[in-house]
Design a protein around this nucleic acid. Structure first.
Lengths: 155, 155
DNA sequence: TATTGTTATACTCTATAACTATA
DNA sequence: TATAGTTATAGAGTATAACAATA
């Protein structure tokens, strides 16, 4: 890319991200997230799923019967966005909504058998994506990153 | 929120993010990025700017006269997305496009005087946002996070 | 009155494809 | 032929406001 500029003395200096920006944590965080998103997409191209869909399935796996408002809290999303998200998974037959007998305003969301099957088939691809994202870090560094991000989030 | 559930024995267990997810790096990265985005928005509400706009202005500050294709490379974006991004900043009068005399296919993007003024007025709010995001970490931890994310990105 | 969820709607961001102008 | 940029267009994701059902 930009061969002409590189070959031309006046333009021989390739534009670079200045150190002030390369050391800027918001920039690093945004680029890391961007890379993670793209690698997840690349690895799960054969499955009709996004990273967030996958995250919600994991959430439901360990926490069956969540209310949509609870999903909104747990994922930091608006109620209407959760409606949209659950709609999509329900159309694929991966989750079901049932009214909560204890509070009929609320709908309880659970994974279906098809959802569990889909989750199992996607899991290896998701794991491969994570492996590629984290490839530059050894186990100790991954633990450090986990600890730092956990502190950052106040968890 | 969910007062009824909390007050009811059957529902006394508040739904929690399971440890398996709380320790999941993709989840932590996504939440950290989400938090950063929202705090930037909250702090810069008085200015008509997004985090990415701000990042591009910083990029142009230290690298005046970038081609749009170079911006695309540096920010990991598609050419058409850069057109859209530069359009927005140009409408606000913060950047200007000029054809590069050395290669008239390309447009050179520079900050205007108004752009520099805007950047200076926004900088304190952006800094406050970053301070709030990073508040849980001391200087040593910030350096560690910088180093780990830099390695993650292969920079 | 407050809360859960839905719907209608609109806006932002992103990318693909087809184009133009230059190289 | 290949590259830089634009335009038209479409799709994802997000949110606000108004609403219905229930508490």
């Amino acid at each position: 890319m930009h061969y002409y500029r590189l070959a031309t003395p006046e333009h021989a200096v390739q534009p670079r991200i200045p150190t002030s920006i390369r050391r800027h944590l918001p920039y690093l965080l945004a680029r890391a997230y961007q890379r993670q998103q793209r690698l997840f997409e690349a690895h799960t191209r054969d499955f009709d799923i996004t990273g967030r869909d996958y995250g919600l399935l994991l959430m439901l796996e360990s926490n069956p019967g969540l209310w949509q408002s609870e999903i909104a809290d747990l994922m930091g999303l608006d109620r209407t966005t959760v409606t949209y998200l659950v709609d999509g998974l329900q159309k694929r037959g991966w989750v079901a909504r049932e009214p909560d007998p204890a509070d009929r305003r609320a709908h309880v969301v659970t994974m279906t058998a098809d959802g569990r099957t889909a989750l199992e088939s996607i899991r290896p691809a998701a794991a491969a994506a994570i492996d590629e994202v984290l490839a530059p870090l050894d186990e100790t560094e991954r633990d450090q990153l986990r600890a730092l991000l956990t502190r950052l989030l106040g968890h």
